[in-house]
């Protein structure tokens, strides 16, 4: 099942990428990133059958980081929304110096 898992992981990851590229809503963008993280997690888990449980440990770390990222990212989105009344990326170019 390893090959199938990895293939599935790749497909999900690609869908996530396409989502990131096509969507403009910041929140959905975040969710696409989460999807990509999940795809990677899947390949970790699949490969952990081959290499031992370290892959699963990594999945835990990835989840933690994802949680942190979601918390901070959503906070930022809320802050921006308060300021600009929008979460559309095309309207947000704060990063431009």
């Amino acid at each position: 099942m390893l090959a199938e898992s990895l293939a599935l992981s790749a497909v999900l990851f690609t869908i996530g990428v396409v989502g990131v590229l096509t969507r403009r809503n910041a929140i959905i963008l975040f969710m696409c990133v989460e999807l990509m993280l999940n795809a990677v997690n899947l390949s970790f888990v699949a490969l952990s059958k081959l290499y031992g449980a370290t892959g699963q440990v990594f999945v835990i770390f990835v989840m933690t980081v994802a949680a942190a990222e979601a918390a901070v990212g959503l906070a930022i989105i809320i802050a921006i929304f308060r300021h600009r009344q929008t979460v559309h990326l095309d309207d947000i170019n704060l990063l431009k110096g």
Binding site: V17, L21, L29, L89, I92, N93, L95, K96, G97
Partner: peptide, 13 residues
């Protein structure tokens, strides 16, 4: 550096 995340995402990908 457009400041638009969309552009950055494209460049990154």
């Amino acid at each position: 550096q457009t400041g638009r995340i969309g552009t950055y995402a494209w460049v990154l990908v």
